[in-house]
Write a protein that binds this DNA or RNA. Structure first.
Length: 583
RNA sequence: CGGGGCGUAGCGUAGUGGCUAGCGCGCCUGCUUUGGGAGCAGGAGAUCGGGAGUUCGAAUCUCCCCGCCCCGACCA
């Protein structure tokens, strides 16, 4: 392969585009890889499309390696198919909907579970046909409320999605494991730094669920990782270490105290410490009861919900929502509170919740037998030594507190640290949700139907390009890993005539040796511009045919390390093709 | 949808009531230059986001609308 800068459709920008903030967006635009068409919608230019196709190729190869077979579905899908799975309504505003000339409804696919399931149902009917894994690499559409960060989160993006079809749970587990390995190989080959984190399976249902996150500052997913063991989870799924449970019975009796004007945790703690109770209280000794409301799927009615957390912690609504899916959770409005006068704002305690029929969830930090200062359900009064298992019993535990940097790992007790990452892949065991919806069965050896169980696996192909740019750049520009770079060598002809002629000859030799070469054969461009462009474009090796030519030397530069060495013109092809072959 | 910022040439920007809207990059022509985004000279390119209004006069002031970016809500 030989690409010539003199004719390449490329214009680099000297300055950062004003609308770009994150590094990938800035650099991909500056280096002429992509151009914005509309918010969240981008065109891929020749260099960018080469990187894109390299990523796509690697993803495809690793899918095929585990026996997944590639298909290609339409992006344009009739409404009826999504009606069957209820997602025409359930997906909400994020679904791109459109009408044809007859007024019939269509959508642009955000994911393709329906089509995969229906396709298999239409073709396969025997247990002998399974297991099966299919995948596609397809443009997906989501009408994001707020597209952002260039191609990291667009309204149109390319995703590889695959689905496994198995007869039983063991088969699903095996398919899931195969995909997990394939994803590791894929991201390893791409040169992405990533973490596999536990996730909640969310609205899609199912059990096992893990995300592949590429740690980077501009990532929009927060996750937690243990500094001691390999535990990592996103903030919805994370579990932190909790205190040992205690015996409820042998604890001091509960008592009600006068605590006027203490509707907040801070005012309460101040007051407690003036009462001479023989100990110092902190916010962590109090039990905060936050009033929320929930809406079960398919219901229009909202029900009150109280969540108890230690007073020094906030409730993380997003985390809570993630665990209560598909039930919706929201902050209770004053009007909601008014519907239950026995809940006294600022003085709510769990002691009466059973009696008044309000669901009570506690964070696991509120362990059985733990004693708390909490509201007495009377204006200006709090209760002390309120013990879980004696004075109240929650309906269940749910991880609700905001995770802090330094919280302890539930596995090993090590410190947890919070980081941000880009979700580049997600694997989960979908189970029988769509098989149930569409009646996907295989006929078993006993002539009885077997309901198929599915796994769902996604890789954001276009997003991976952006994630690579996020992880592989410096102040000068992009620094592509060899496997995805638009070329192996960026060959700069530093001068005219002799040097240009020598560069031409060398470029032909590289190409003949199977080295992908980008030749800067532009005349009338100063060498400084060529160097800057080479650094911005980020091909791993830069070879300069310049002043050393009179001595039969060219300069080889490593874009990543900045290392430079002079190599004999006669030896450079062999040296470079060896290093390219090794990578 | 809430909060903030911003719309002037392909890109980055200056210009807060007064002459022909200025500058840098990029682009075109010519000459010079060739190891770090070159120099000189000449040139093309803008309905100043749109509409309405105020005014002798509007990029500039007022109102409405549209769009973009960032934060949040939301979101595999």
């Amino acid at each position: 392969m030989l690409l010539r800068m003199s004719t390449l459709f490329l214009r680099t920008l000297r300055e950062d585009p004003a609308d770009a903030e994150v590094p990938s967006h800035r650099l991909l635009v500056r280096a002429g890889y992509v151009r914005r068409v509309a918010p969240g919608i981008y065109s891929w230019l020749p260099l960018g499309y080469r990187v894109f196709r390299n990523v796509e190729r690697i993803v495809r190869e690793e899918m095929e390696r585990i026996g997944a077979q590639e298909v290609h579905f339409p992006a344009l899908i009739p409404r009826e198919i999504y009606e069957q799975s209820k997602r025409w309504d359930d997906y909400g505003d994020t679904l791109f909907r459109l009408k044809d000339r007859k007024g019939a409804d269509y959508l642009l696919g955000p994911t393709h579970e329906e089509l995969f399931t229906l396709l298999v149902k239409g073709e396969y009917s025997s247990y002998k046909d399974y297991p099966l894994a299919l995948f596609q690499i397809q443009t997906k559409y989501r009408d994001e409320a707020r597209p952002r960060a260039g191609i990291l989160r667009g309204r149109e993006f390319v995703m590889k999605d695959s689905y496994s079809f198995d007869l039983d749970d063991e088969g699903l587990a095996a398919s899931y494991a195969a995909h997990r390995v394939a994803y590791q190989k894929t991201f390893d080959r791409l040169g992405l730094d990533y973490r596999i984190v536990f996730a909640v399976s969310g609205a899609m249902g199912g059990s096992a669920s893990e995300e592949f996150l590429a740690p980077t500052e501009s990532g929009e997913d927060t996750f937690v990782q243990c500094e001691n063991c390999d535990y990592a989870a996103n903030t919805e799924a994370v579990e932190i270490a909790v205190p040992e449970p205690r015996e409820a019975v042998d604890q001091p009796d509960s008592a009600v105290l006068d605590t006027p004007d203490t509707p907040t945790i801070a005012t309460l703690v101040d007051r407690l410490n003036t009462l001479g109770l023989g100990r110092e209280f902190t916010a962590a000794d109090t039990l905060k009861n936050v009033v929320l409301k929930t809406q079960a799927p398919g219901q229009t009615e909202w029900k009150l919900l109280v969540v108890g957390v230690p007073g020094d912690r906030e409730v993380d609504l997003k985390r809570l929502q993630g665990q209560l899916e598909p039930t919706q959770v929201a902050q209770a409005e004053p009007a909601d509170l008014a519907s239950e006068p026995r809940l006294v704002k600022g003085y709510i305690g769990p002691q009466i919740l059973k009696e008044i029929g309000v669901t009570y969830l506690v964070d696991p930090l509120v362990v059985p037998g733990s004693a708390w200062v909490t509201g007495a359900n009377v204006e200006n009064k709090h209760a002390i030594a309120v013990v879980r298992g004696r004075d109240f019993e929650p309906d269940r535990e749910v991880g609700a507190v905001e995770i802090r940097d330094g919280d302890l790992c539930a596995r090993c007790g090590g410190h947890l640290s919070i980081a941000r990452g880009i979700e580049i892949g997600h694997i989960f065991q979908l189970g029988r949700k769509f098989a149930d919806t569409f009646g996907l069965d295989a006929l078993g050896p006993d002539s009885k139907p077997i309901r198929i169980t599915m796994g769902s696996y996604g890789i954001g192909v276009s997003r991976a390009v952006a994630a690579l740019a996020e992880q592989h750049h410096d102040e000068l520009g992009l620094v592509w890993p060899a496997a995805v770079a638009p070329a192996d060598v960026h060959l700069v002809a530093a001068g005219k005539e002799d040097q240009l002629a020598a560069a031409e000859t060398l470029a032909a030799a590289f190409a003949a040796a199977g080295v992908r070469v980008l030749l800067d054969d532009r005349t009338g461009v100063s060498v400084g511009v060529k160097f800057k462009d080479a650094e911005l474009i980020g091909v791993p090796l830069i070879v300069v045919v310049g002043r050393g030519l009179v001595d039969g030397l060219v300069e080889v530069r490593d874009r990543a390390t900045g290392e430079r060495s002079d190599v004999a013109l006669s030896a450079v092809v062999a040296q470079v093709s060896a290093s390219v072959g090794n990578s």
